[in-house]
Simulated assay, not measured.
Amino acid sequence: MLVKFLALGLVLLLMTGCFSSQQEVIIVEKSINLQNISQHKLTNAKRTKQKIVRKENRKTNRWSIPVKGNISKTFSTRNKHLGLTFDTKAGQNVRAIRNGKVVYVGNKMKSHGKMIIIRHLFGFYSSYTQNKDLIVENGDTVTKGQIIAITSKVPFYFEMKKFKQPINPIKYLK
């Protein structure tokens, strides 16, 4: 009997902490798509519409190709070619691969010619080199597909990094 009484007292003591006014509970909703919770209740027409919207969102979230042209050299850490070289003609438009902020514009690295570096979300950087004319300036905010430069006679060279680590752009530019 005494054991039951002590157990009941312990439970009541623990429960009083739950009801005190000094504690606060914060609930953070992290669901991406709340419609998925009750998806089994949706009609076929609504499911088809959701699939189309998801496919369109995947397409718009992709990174875009910076210039039109065939890739003549691919990413290779072994050959110390840490980007992509495109066969381009002089005068082609160079476009931002995704929204971001221009963090460098210039030609301090002579081997890269006129160069632009854009910082994107989540620690990504993109470098656009061997340009004839630079359209953006340091500090500009750019949008995906915006023309940022014009190519020169030299083949266009493009690199991507994630937190200063070179990454293969092919994985993102599909």
Score class of each variant (00 low, 15 high):
K49P: 12
K51S: 12
I52Q: 07
V53A: 10
V53D: 10
K55D: 05
E56I: 15
N57A: 14
N57D: 09
N57T: 14
N57Y: 00
N57K: 13
R58M: 07
R58N: 13
K59Q: 10
T60R: 07
R62P: 13
R62W: 11
I65L: 07
V67R: 05
K68D: 13
K68M: 15
I71K: 00
S72Y: 04
F75W: 05
N79M: 06
G83T: 09
G83W: 15
D87K: 12
D87N: 07
K89L: 13
N93C: 06
A96L: 09
I97H: 00
G100A: 04
G100R: 01
V103N: 00
Y104T: 14
G113D: 02
G113V: 13
K114I: 14
I116V: 12
I117K: 06
L121C: 00
F122K: 12
G123I: 04
D133F: 15
D133R: 11
G139K: 06
D140V: 03
D140C: 10
T141P: 02
V142M: 10
K144T: 07
Q146T: 10
I150N: 10
T151N: 09
K153W: 03
F156W: 14
E159G: 02
M160N: 07
M160Y: 04
M160T: 01
K164Q: 05
K164N: 08
